[in-house]
Amino acid sequence: MSWLINSSIGRKLIMSVSGIVLVLFLLFHLSMNVAAVFSAEAYNTICSLLGSNWYAVAATAVLAAIIALHFTYATLLTLQNRKARGSNRYTVSARPKGVSWASQNMFVIGLIVCGFFILHLSQFWYNMMFTEVLGHEEATLCDGTTIGTTDGAAFIEYYFSHLWVVVAYLIWYTALWFHLTHGIWSAFKLSGGTMRYGSNDGKLSPTFWLRSSSSASPE
């Protein structure tokens, strides 16, 4: 299996598969957060179901490993690609029509996503799962407020009452949107999906999924 590391397509497969796993995690996370919109009680039930139970901690460890893999390969590929571009840069270069901005700036957008991800972990994961793993039942925040580690709804209410947090999360979602519009499309392209009839501008259309599955095989 050394071709996974030694060939360009193998390395891209690692990026694509780890990326798809992270997208699936985001969908899982999203489906839980939706509960908080309707009922604080329901959301807290989910929080206590996960908490610091062994399966939640194990899944977090796997997730951390996948994020590390995705990040390491992103860095490696970016460095290799810069080297392949050569030491002399073009004096005049233009982005061709039909090439999305996101597709040419995936690494930078990824760094923005990572930055806010650290903020998000420090606000929620650190005070919820990590504090509970350490054996505490309540987390003390920087202004002295104490919130129970499984009271997720209270954490949401506390943090999103600060305007800067709301703005920060909106920036995060925008960056994530651009990263995923190219990322998901590219991952499908890599694993052999094709957009034979559509435009190749990296936008996801509802019919894309059908097209990518129906034209996946040349036979």
């Binding site: 397509i9 690609n81 039909g98 090439v99 597709s103 190749n200």
Partner: peptide, 27 residues
């Protein structure tokens, strides 16, 4: 370098070679 599916090649190709070929090569 390693392809990241930006699609710039297809846009600039004088013979309009489609990046569908890249998906076929990956496969």
């Amino acid at each position: 370098g390693n392809c990241t599916n930006t699609g710039a090649c297809e846009q600039e190709c004088p013979k309009s070679i489609s990046i569908t070929n890249i998906a076929r090569l990956n496969r």
